[in-house]
Amino acid sequence: MKRYFIHRLLLLLPTLFGALSLVFLLVHLIPGDPVDVMLGETASGADKQELRRSLGLDQPLPTQYRNFLTKLASGDLGRSLFEQASVNQIIGQRLPATLELAFCAMIAALVISFPLAFIAARRPGGIADRGALLFSLLGLSLPNFWLGPLLMILFSIQLGWTPVSGRGGWLHVILPALTLGLGMAAILTRILRASLIQVARAEFVKTARAKGLSENQVWLKHMLRNALLSVVTIMSLQFGALLAGSLITETVFSWPGIGRLTVQAIQTRDYPLVQGCVLVIAVAYLLVNFFTDILYKLVDPRVSYGE
């Protein structure tokens, strides 16, 4: 286990370093001078030069890169160009909203997919099964940027059941969570259904039935437990999709999270903020995948690396 952990960590570090370098390069390749954006095109040359110097933008790119890494090592993501706050502070304020949304989206996905997968797997090929598969195909085909406005029209505008946008009480989170969670629900329904159908054929399930356990006990105690591993894997793999989806969903619902912040930072060319947001999302994504691998190894010791 220790060897596996070290092996995975050694693979994670160059990937992380590569991702950081890519973000730095991308942000510094964005056309347009941030100083022009901050001061306006009419500012004097001396003012621009002074600001450029204070931001370290007059240094050659390799020096800026070294400064970036040095600051990053101490956890400093720089200062926003427009807001009087550090990037760390701004992201720290917005992150809870994204985590809340991602958590609620996961709950929504579980609540939708579990009953559907169970009903579908009870009679493979039956009407319910076909319905569940059709749902999962439709769920995968509905883009967030359309589903969000559709739900908004129906539930907020026509029926008036939920607020149109923003973050507040639990009513605010329902539509964004449904929008973000539907894609995951579609995938989970498919995977859980397939796992349950496969487990249903296993010998231990026949044994459980032969012992005289009720059908519900067989499904809940024996089959579900074995099918859960695939669910956990898919959910962690889908974490990246949730983060990516949050960019659109948060924009649609004006949800004050890191996804909307990233889009706004790109639109206003707030380079340090763009850099910080992209970094935080990429690092979170990498770490979730890393810990999933480790957890997976703990749960199933047969997993090995490199084959």
Binding site: A19, A241, L243, A244, L247, I248, T262, V278, A282, Y285
Partner: peptide, 8 residues
């Protein structure tokens, strides 16, 4: 490259 969620 896969360290970044697709659309980001």
């Amino acid at each position: 490259l896969l360290a970044f969620p697709g659309i980001l």
